[in-house]
Design a protein around this nucleic acid. Sequence first.
DNA 1: GTGAAAGCGCTAACAC
DNA 2: GTGTTAGCGCTTTCAC
Lengths: 340, 340
Amino acid sequence: MRVRLEDVARATGVSPKTVSRVLNEEPSVKESTRQRVLAAMESMNYRPSPAARGLAGSRSFLIAMLYDNNDNPASTYLAEIQDGVLDACDAHRYSMMVCPLRLRGQDFIRRVDALVAEHHIDGVIMTPPLTDNAALLRRLKELGVPYASISPQHREGSIGVCMDEQHAAKVLVEHLIELGHRCIAHIVGIASHGASRWRLQGYKDALAAAGLPFDPHYVVQGEFTFGSGVMAARQLFALPQEPTAIFAANDDMAAGVMWAANERGLKVPRDLSVCGFDDTPLATQLWPPLSTVRQPSRDMGKLATLQLMEVLRGRGTGLLVQVPYSLQWRESTSTPPQKS
Amino acid sequence: MRVRLEDVARATGVSPKTVSRVLNEEPSVKESTRQRVLAAMESMNYRPSPAARGLAGSRSFLIAMLYDNNDNPASTYLAEIQDGVLDACDAHRYSMMVCPLRLRGQDFIRRVDALVAEHHIDGVIMTPPLTDNAALLRRLKELGVPYASISPQHREGSIGVCMDEQHAAKVLVEHLIELGHRCIAHIVGIASHGASRWRLQGYKDALAAAGLPFDPHYVVQGEFTFGSGVMAARQLFALPQEPTAIFAANDDMAAGVMWAANERGLKVPRDLSVCGFDDTPLATQLWPPLSTVRQPSRDMGKLATLQLMEVLRGRGTGLLVQVPYSLQWRESTSTPPQKS
DNA sequence: GTGAAAGCGCTAACAC
DNA sequence: GTGTTAGCGCTTTCAC
């Protein structure tokens, strides 16, 4: 029937324990033995049983990807992250479970407890805003479950991946200023996300660096959704002096701004420049194509997972890796309209 | 430490096997015993170990969601399906593994073999075009792994979920005809997807029902992507007589059509009516909002999974459930332009 | 460096 | 209806 570890042992003429050692990459095996075992595994098409390994050992070779099912960013973002996590799992023969949590609704800690208790999860990958939920982080620490974060707010001591979003936002807005814009608005994302804070701060940094005044009227609250972008834009259009450029904290909201601009009869970028953040597929599917900051989500998912694996394999304590952003200048931005 | 089945047995004063019976909902347990065991499980906060169950028993309580990583539809579609699958898994205490396959690249069968061999998968959920891959279906049958399909082409004997896409497309195009359009084009999706065939056939049905001639020049090939929609639209705009309405086989391509219309200076819907199919979030994020057919993807994922569970729990053979579509008339469609 | 024995937490096949 | 025994395929502990 099934090829077992014992079969490999017999075929190689060693004990099961030695095969187990090879399987787990333990160092104390003579190289020649190791090679023979490996060859036998290969030729016999041996596949270790995760269930047996999980039951007998302390590791399950299972990680869970946690995300918030209420206030998550666009699903394309999560899908890309997930693909990246899977890439890393494949490479290290780990399996991944997907675990949507509802941050509102206070039983999400119990969901995590259940996950760990039942499946003996080895580690966790999290996306914002879970990365900054104190209760969740505390519980994971209590449970002794290592975790890696994608874009966590608190960077000291965190492992996972991040991007210098603040600087990216600053460079973005600086370019708008260079184009001649003086009245630049910003639409903020959900407060619990670090992204919202960083992108807002980058906006402020750029204004300050250019000696432009910061006017709170030009900063309106959004929720990272298309609809909230529409609402925010309408609010901005109602100001005595309309902005000539709007920097939305993500692409979905920027799409909302362009929608609202259409509604109002404004032509982008002639009457209004618009930029977003993230470079989701949407960005190039809008008319005109959206200027934005590219965030390599899939790579970020993969890198965060690789850092987690470092911890799980005892190779180190894991790092917070920083990935580079890149600005995508497309047709939604240009010089401001001439003063009438 | 951990609460085991044996602990529950001891606390209840029955044998481990009886607790096991209760856990697995076997009928041959006296109701009063069942209640006592259940109560003990609850109060002791007992959580069965999937690893132990998988190792000892014939079932793993694990299902895999398979999808094609090359020619898949928009990722938002897959994300919604996945959410639905997770809903169903939650309800039945199953776990789900995500398994992207590459249909091009001939080793995808081996990936499936590995998945089944290693994880002892109980069943599989598939999305198009995997649902119609003969090699894959054959292998799953050989392996004895039950599967449920989402929108499979071959409906006889299939279990899972489907929608009457052909009829939906027909109704959609009929409405365009009612609006006065006589020159309606269609952009087809990837050939390996049933969706492409059904939607094309519905288009033909509507023309035939209205006594309009079918002109192959007005049917161009797309790939379900935004970019292919742009290309296809450009092709249609180059025809001697431009269409007054374009029905794209999905929303992404419809977005491409609207993009190309913008590029050409056409105003939607004044100069051109556009419709899509699926009602992805994109549909309401375009300007103008897109008329389309709503497909309840999340429900479909859930329903397909529930049918699979019926099979896994031995409750029946499973059905192919049909879900209703609904037309979403938005602002991208109107009467055709006056002949000049 | 390698091996022997015990057991992880559960279910299968039987007996009662 | 319920209990007993054995064992799923590995890793652990400890011995050599």
